[in-house]
Design a protein around this nucleic acid. Structure first.
Lengths: 347, 347
DNA sequence: CTCCTCTGAGAAACCGTTTTCTCGTGCAGA
DNA sequence: TCTGCACGAGAAAACGGTTTCTCAGAGGAG
C-alpha cells in the first residue's frame, strides 16, 4: 500500500472524501466543527491514500518545525550519545526530530551549524558537552528559540541540567562504608575539574575527614601509577573510590599485578559506568551511573515545554546518579549480569 | 548586530533596498537580470539587517529541505559516530543538516523515525549499522528519496559503502611478515560474521596457507582465553593478528600476565583502531583503521549527488583501510604519539 | 410566522520564499 | 520616424498546508 510516500497532498484527500481542503485539514487535526461522519470519511480517505502532511508547509504557517537541534563538542560521543538517546526517546512520539551537530571546539564551525539550524527554524536547541564546567565555543544567549543546557555550562539565567556528582559519590562512599571498608582513598582526575571537586567533597563528607585524595589524569595509566604510589608509601587502603572508570580499571589491573585481590583485599568503585570499560574490567566494576539518558529525556521534555511557550523555571537542576553494583566491591554483590549490573537499593 | 535571528523577512530587505521582493530574491540568489548596482544594494541591505532566509518557505517551493537523515541501529555509536562526523563534515558547507535517528533493532521505532523524516522532506537518507552483513529492521527500498548504505547491508540495486576488510587485513599481515614474523595466528570473532570471513581469507592469503584461526566472541575475555589455548597446546606464535581491538587487548594482557613480552616475543595487531582500547593497551596497539570518517564523507557526498539528480552507479564500494602503527609490533615503530599513532607508509 | 442562534462546511487569506510572466523604457537598426 | 528587442524590475502565481471569515440552512423561541 501507500508506496508513494510523500506525493499525496491534502487536496487529494479532500477531493476523495468529497469535501474542501479546509474541512479536510480540520478533520485530520481534530479541530473545527463538522459531522462526526464527515470527519471519519476524511480520515478514512487519508488512510487509504497514505496521506502524510508536508511538514514544511505545515511548519511555515504554524511557525513550528517539530525539529530541535543538539549542539555538542563531545566528538567522542561518550557523554553525548546517551544524552542524545534520551532526547530522541522523549521527543520521537511528539513527532520531533533531532539535528545532531558536532562542533569540535571550533567557534566558526559552531556558528555555521547554529545558523543552519536557525534557518531551518528549529523549535529549540539543546547544548551538550563533555565537561560540566565548560561552555561551548558559541554564544547561545540571545537566540530567538529556547535553549537548554545538558551536561555543559549554560549562560546566566538559562535552564541547565547536570548530574548530581555529590549525591552519586556519596552513594558510592556509603556503599563502601556499609561493606565495612575503613580506609577508603580517592583517586581521581585533575583538580581543575568541577566534577572532581564535587566528588572529592562528597568523598570527604562521606568518610568524615580529609582522607587521602590523589589527583591525576583521567587515564588507566594514572590508575596504575596511583596504586604504585599508595603501596610504595605503605598506605594500603581497603577501598579505592575512583574518579572515573578508566582510572578504576588501571587501579584494578595494577592491584591484580601486585597480587592484591579485588574485591577480597580491596574494594574498587568507578564513576561513569561506561559499559565498555566497567564491564570488561576483571572483575567488572561497580560504578556510578550518571543517568545521562534520563538527563537527555528531561532536556528534551524541557526544551519542548519552552518551545510551546510554557514557563520553565531557570537555574541549574541536578539529576540523581545511580550506583550500579557489579563485582569489584564484594559484599552482597550476588548477581552480575554482563550488561547493566544490579542497581543498588536506594534506602 | 543582527541580534534578532530569524525575524527579518525578505520583505524587509526589499523595502530597505527600495525594490520588490521578487527583485530582492533574485539579487540574493544571483539569478535574474538587474543592474549590478541594484544587486549590491540589496545584498548590502540584507547584510545590514542580518537577513537569513526561512528554509521552510524556500524548501516548500524548491522541494529541497537541505536536510538528510541518518538512520542507525548502532546505539553504542562506536561505528556510527565516526560515520556521522564524516557525513556532517561533507555536508555542512553545502548548508545541509543531519537528522540522527537511533532505532534500536525495533522495526516499529524505525518506521516512526523514517516517517517523521519523510514528512520533513529530507533530501536523502543514509542508513548505517554496526554490522556489515545485517540489514536495518526497516525497509528502505521504495522510498521517494535516495538512500545510501554505509556500513550496513543495502537492498538490491542500492548504493552501498563498506570498508575493505580484505585489504586492511592483508596490510596487517604483510606488516607482520615484513617485521620477520614467521608463525602468525589469527584470533577473531564469531565465524558467522562476514567481516570475520573476509579478514580470515586475507590472513590465509597473506601467510600463504591455512594457518591457525581461533574463532570466539568479540571480547577481551576471549582474547585471554585464546592465549591460554595457544600456550596450553604448546603452539607459541611470534605474532597474533586479532579480529578487533578488544580481543587484542585481552591477548596483550594475557601475554603480559604470562611473562611473554609484547612486542619483543610476540607482535600483536588489532582491528578497528578504537582509540579508547587501542591507545590504552600496554603497549598501545598497532591496529587497522577502517577510515569510517572518510566512509561517512563519501556517503554524504553520494547522497547529495543523488538528491541533486546526478546519476550514481549502484553497487558495493569498498573503501580502503589504513594500518596505524603503535608499539605492539616493535620493529620500526619509532614514534608513538598518544593519539592516532603513525600511519604505515604505503610504499 | 418571524427572528435569532447555532451548526456544518466552504472561500479565501496567510506563512515566506522562489519563479514565471508581464510590462515599460531606452536604444539600435531600418 | 517607426519597429523591434533587450533589459531591468515588479506583479502575481505558485508551494501545501492551517486558520479565519463568511454564509446558507436548520431549529427553537416568542
Amino acid at each position: 500500500m501507500s508506496a508513494g510516500g510523500g506525493r499525496v497532498r491534502i487536496y487529494d484527500v479532500a477531493s476523495r472524501a468529497g469535501v474542501s481542503v479546509a474541512t479536510a485539514s480540520k478533520a485530520l487535526n481534530d479541530t473545527g466543527r463538522m459531522t462526526e461522519d464527515t470527519r471519519q470519511r476524511v480520515k478514512a480517505a487519508a488512510t487509504e491514500l497514505g496521506f502524510r502532511p508536508n511538514a514544511m508547509a505545515r511548519g511555515l504557517i504554524q511557525k513550528r518545525s517539530f525539529t530541535i537541534g543538539l549542539l555538542t563538542n563531545d566528538t567522542y560521543g561518550r557523554f553525548t550519545l546517551p544524552v542524545m538517546a534520551g532526547i530522541s526517546e522523549a521527543l520521537v512520539d511528539q513527532g520531533v526530530s533531532v539535528f545532531l551537530c558536532g562542533i569540535e571546539d571550533d567557534p566558526a564551525l559552531g556558528r555555521v551549524h547554529l545558523d543552519a539550524m536557525l534557518d531551518k527554524q528549529v523549535d529549540g536547541i539543546i547544548a551538550s558537552g563533555k565537561r560540566i564546567d565548560r561552555r561551548l565555543p558559541v554564544d547561545l544567549s540571545n537566540l530567538p528559540v529556547p535553549v537548554v543546557y545538558a551536561f555543559t555550562e549554560g549562560h546566566e539565567g538559562s535552564v541547565t541540567l547536570v548530574s548530581d556528582d555529590f549525591q552519586g559519590s556519596a552513594e558510592a562512599v556509603e556503599h563502601l562504608i556499609a561493606l565495612g571498608c575503613k580506609r577508603i582513598v580517592h583517586v581521581t582526575g585533575p583538580e581543575t575539574f568541577a566534577s572532581v571537586k564535587e566528588r572529592t567533597k562528597a568523598y570527604r563528607a562521606g568518610i568524615g575527614g580529609d582522607g587521602v585524595v590523589l589527583y591525576g589524569a583521567w587515564s588507566e595509566h594514572w590508575g596504575h601509577e596511583a596504586v604504585a604510589q599508595l603501596w610504595q608509601q605503605g598506605e594500603t587502603p581497603d577501598a579505592i573510590f575512583c574518579g572515573n572508570d578508566q582510572i578504576a580499571r588501571g587501579v584494578v589491573d595494577a592491584l591484580r599485578e601486585r597480587g592484591v585481590k579485588v574485591p577480597a583485599d580491596v574494594s574498587v568503585v568507578g564513576f561513569d559506568n561506561w559499559e565498555i570499560v566497567a564491564g570488561q574490567t576483571r572483575p567488572p566494576l561497580t560504578s556510578v551511573d550518571m543517568n545521562l539518558k534520563a538527563l537527555g529525556r528531561e532536556a528534551g521534555r524541557l526544551v519542548l515545554e519552552l518551545a510551546e511557550g510554557k514557563p520553565v523555571e531557570p537555574g541549574v537542576r541536578k539529576l540523581p546518579c545511580q550506583l550500579v553494583i557489579r563485582e569489584s566491591c564484594g559484599g552482597n554483590a550476588a548477581v552480575t549480569e554482563s550488561r547493566g549490573g544490579v542497581v543498588a537499593a536506594v534506602d
